[in-house]
Every structure is written in C-alpha cells, then in structure tokens.
Design a protein around this nucleic acid. Structure first.
Length: 101
DNA sequence: TCGAATGACAGCG
DNA sequence: CGCTGTCATTCGA
C-alpha cells in the first residue's frame, strides 16, 4: 500500500463514482476514515487533477452543488450531461447519491 | 444561527 | 524552516 496523501485518496475515490451518480463531501470524508469534510473540498479545489477527476460529481450533503473551479454553471451542465436532473441548483440525493461502499 | 473541527497547501518572516 | 490563513463542509448547542 503506497502512502497516498489525503488528496490522492480523495481523487481515487472520486474516480470510482459511476456515471449518472453523485457523491457528497461527507460521504467521501467518511470513506477516507476522516472528519475533514473541508479537506475534501480543499483537495479538489486546489485540484491539480480537475481533468481526470469528476469533481463535478461532488456536492454538499444538502444536495447543493457546492462549487466548481471552472464555475458552478459548468458543473450543472456536466451533471445534466450524465442524466442527472438539477432543480433550483440542487440535486435529488435520494435518486442520485452514490451508495456503494 | 454561529462556532469548532479537520487535512493539505500557499504565503510570509 | 516554521507558523498562519484558506477551502467548494459538516455537526453540535
């Protein structure tokens, strides 16, 4: 097991998100066995892997989109492109949240 | 509604 | 080289 940093682990997990599904910061942080929810956002924010990591699939626990380096508008577009319907800048977690630990 | 907590990175001295 | 502030959040009182 290589010693990956928090960010690295974060990216790996994000890449595991299937198409048409989304994930929350909380979900990721818990999977990483940590409580640094912000660290997840931080790792993605600084994102050096924005091109290989679907950060647009990561949203708040409230179903809010949260944010996106390239712009929240872009995020919405990408999500809709996957078949995810967005209402009032929010996502139906009940329908799209990824449950596959 | 507000503050604390948690992890990595950038900037400053 | 070491410390502080920041970041797209979340939980508890």
């Amino acid at each position: 097991m290589k010693k990956l940093t928090f960010s690295q682990k974060c990216y790996k997990l994000l890449k595991k998100i299937p198409k048409g599904k989304v994930s929350t910061y909380k979900w990721i942080a818990e999977k990483l066995n940590t409580k640094a929810y912000q660290a997840v956002g931080n790792a993605i924010h600084k994102n050096k892997n924005l091109m290989i990591i679907p950060c647009y699939k990561v949203i708040n626990n409230n179903g809010c989109l949260g944010g996106y380096s390239k712009g929240i508008n872009k995020k919405i577009k990408l999500l809709k492109n996957e078949g995810i319907e967005i209402k009032n800048n929010k996502i139906d977690l009940k329908k799209y949240e990824w449950f596959s630990g």
